[in-house]
Amino acid sequence: MTLDAKIPAGPLAEKWSKHKFNLKLVNPANKRKYDVIVVGTGLAGGAAAASLAELGYNVKAFCFQDSPRRAHSIAAQGGINAAKNYQNDGDSVYRLFYDTIKGGDYRAREGNVYRLAEVSVNIIDQCVAQGVPFAREYGGLLDNRSFGGSQVSRTFYARGTNRAAAFIRRLLRIKPPDTSWQS
């Protein structure tokens, strides 16, 4: 069987925008007629459930713990990468893409990894908008540190153990207007 990864053709930097443009849309009035099951409410599932519910879909979310806040994601302690180049140390979407492809020893898809680097920039804004207490420098700018496999500082983090937990909790606290989420 041949597997079709459906990677859009064209230059790397344009693949995702073009693809988004070509995707079909669901009429806003119809969204509530769709049930979407989300199994898992760690960061990935939590983010999906919240966004889809906000769009108007009827989301049914499941987890095996007694609360989404107990997902494994809460253990994360290092932080999140993003190609913001706040440190002015030469970071860029392309560099994050390149580091990730190389770090993965050239066994990941170019198209996917580029998209990841591209949207990484939005993630931090999204988190800040939701009140994630990222560490800041004295002047108030978000602080960064380095992680393995990279020569730039692009990791956003929260200070202190409690902060790390608060960070995840913030993200999982988002209560979309839809009531099915709370059922």
Partner: peptide, 17 residues
Amino acid sequence: DHGANRLGASALMQGLA
């Protein structure tokens, strides 16, 4: 997205993306 090895601080990035 991580090929044969994931870089630090990229799991949350990918999950949230």
